[in-house]
C-alpha cells in the first residue's frame, strides 16, 4: 500500500453550542450541538502536500486542530506513522509531538508580542530539550537564515517586522523542532499577494530541502492549485471529494467542487462572467438532511434529500455523491 504518514479514520467533532443551563431551563430549549466535522477519512502520504479546501463552516480548521492535538476528536482516530494519537499520553505523545508542527493564519497573533524573536524560535528547541546554551543561539541563527532573515533579528521583537517577515519567523519556529509534518492553516490568507508568493515559494523550497510533508488548509483554490499534490474538498464538515490536484482542476466530479471552481475569479477572465452560483452555505447548527449540498445542487434527486452519500473510491481519490455514483453527473 501507499506510504501514509498520517491517516485520518472516521474523524468527527461536535461542539456543544447550547445556551447556559439556566437559560435553557427558562426558555425550554434543548441542548444544541454543532457538527463541525463528520466522519472524515483520508490519508496524507510522506513527502506530499495534501490540501483541504472549503468555505467557512467546512470544518477544515477543526480538522487541523484535531490533528495537532489542540482539540480532542469526538469520534474516529488519527494515526501518525502507524501510532494512533488518540489516547496516547506522556512520553510516547511527547515523542510524537516532536515530529509535527503547525503554522498559523495570523502572523500578528501567532507570535507572543512580549517575547524576543530568538526566544520564540527557541521555545520548541528548549521544550523538547534538543539543544542548550550557546547551541540554542547558533541553531536560532541558522533557522533565521534558512527562512531568509538575519541572525541579528533574534534580538528584535515581533512588532518590528512586517506581516511577511513575521510569517517567516513562525515558519522558523515550526522548523526548529525538526518536524517531518507541518500543518499549515491558511498560512498566507492574511498576507498581501506579493508577500504570499514569497511565503509559498519559501514553503516549497523548505519542503524540498527537508523532505517535509504538509497538510495545507486554505479557502483559496488558486493557492491550493499551486501548492498541493492531492486535495480534499470539504463542505459542511464532510469530505465531498478527494482527488489528485491535476484531476480535480481539469475534471472535478462532485457538483460542489465544480461550483467552487467556477466561482474562482481568475486574471484571465477580464470582462467574462463567473458562472452564477446558487444560494449560500446553510447554518451548520441546522444542516440540511441527506447530502448537505442538496439545496444548492443542480443534480439533486430525491435520494440526496434522504440519505448521506458514502465515499466511493474513484481513481486515486473518492467522491461522495449519488449523482456521480449513479452516473447522472
Amino acid at each position: 500500500m501507499s506510504d501514509a504518514l498520517v491517516r485520518i479514520e472516521g474523524l468527527s467533532r461536535t461542539f456543544d453550542v447550547s445556551k447556559p443551563w439556566l437559560n435553557r431551563v427558562i426558555e425550554r430549549e434543548p441542548k444544541a450541538f454543532l457538527t463541525a466535522v463528520a466522519d472524515v477519512s483520508f490519508e496524507i502520504r510522506r513527502g506530499e502536500t495534501f490540501a483541504l479546501v472549503g468555505e467557512s463552516g467546512s470544518g477544515k480548521s477543526t480538522i487541523a486542530k484535531m490533528i495537532v492535538g489542540l482539540l480532542a476528536p469526538s469520534g474516529g482516530r488519527i494515526v501518525f506513522d502507524g501510532q494512533p494519537m488518540t489516547g496516547t499520553d506522556g512520553a510516547a505523545m511527547r515523542k510524537l509531538r516532536k515530529r509535527f508542527q503547525m503554522i498559523f493564519q495570523d502572523p500578528f497573533a501567532s507570535l507572543n508580542p512580549r517575547w524576543r524573536v530568538g526566544e520564540i524560535i527557541a521555545e520548541p528547541i528548549r521544550t523538547f530539550g534538543l539543544a542548550s546554551g550557546a547551541e540554542v543561539r547558533r541553531e536560532v541563527a541558522r533557522l533565521l537564515e534558512v527562512v531568509g532573515l538575519g541572525a541579528r533579528d533574534a534580538a528584535k521583537f515581533p512588532h518590528e517586522f512586517s506581516g511577511g517577515q513575521r510569517q517567516r519567523i513562525a515558519i522558523a519556529r515550526a522548523l526548529s523542532s525538526r518536524p517531518e509534518f507541518i500543518v499549515c492553516d491558511e498560512p498566507t490568507s492574511a498576507l498581501d499577494v506579493s508577500v504570499q508568493a514569497q511565503i509559498l515559494n519559501l514553503m516549497r523550497d523548505l519542503q524540498d530541502e527537508f523532505g517535509l510533508t504538509y497538510l495545507f488548509i486554505s479557502h483559496d483554490l488558486s493557492v491550493v492549485r499551486h501548492m498541493a499534490g492531492r486535495i480534499g474538498v470539504l463542505y459542511l464538515g464532510r469530505l465531498a471529494e478527494v482527488a489528485e490536484a491535476k484531476r480535480l482542476f481539469t475534471d472535478p466530479r462532485h457538483p460542489y467542487s465544480r461550483m467552487l471552481l467556477d466561482a474562482v475569479p481568475d486574471l484571465a477572465m477580464t470582462g467574462r462572467r463567473r458562472k452564477q452560483v446558487e444560494g449560500e452555505i446553510p447554518n451548520p447548527i441546522d444542516p440540511p438532511s441527506g447530502c448537505a449540498f442538496h439545496p444548492r445542487c443542480p443534480l439533486v434527486a430525491d435520494r440526496c434529500r434522504r440519505e448521506v452519500p458514502r465515499a466511493v473510491p474513484s481513481g486515486d481519490g473518492m467522491t461522495a455523491c449519488f449523482a456521480v455514483e449513479e452516473g447522472r453527473g
Binding site: S194, Q198, S222, H226
Partner: peptide, 25 residues
Amino acid sequence: GLMGSIPTLTQTAERLTQIPGAMPR
C-alpha cells in the same frame, strides 16, 4: 511583479514570480 505573484488556476509554474522585500512603511 504583482501580476506574476498571483497564483492562478490555469498556470502551474513550479515557482511564483516574487518581488523581493515588502512595501515600505
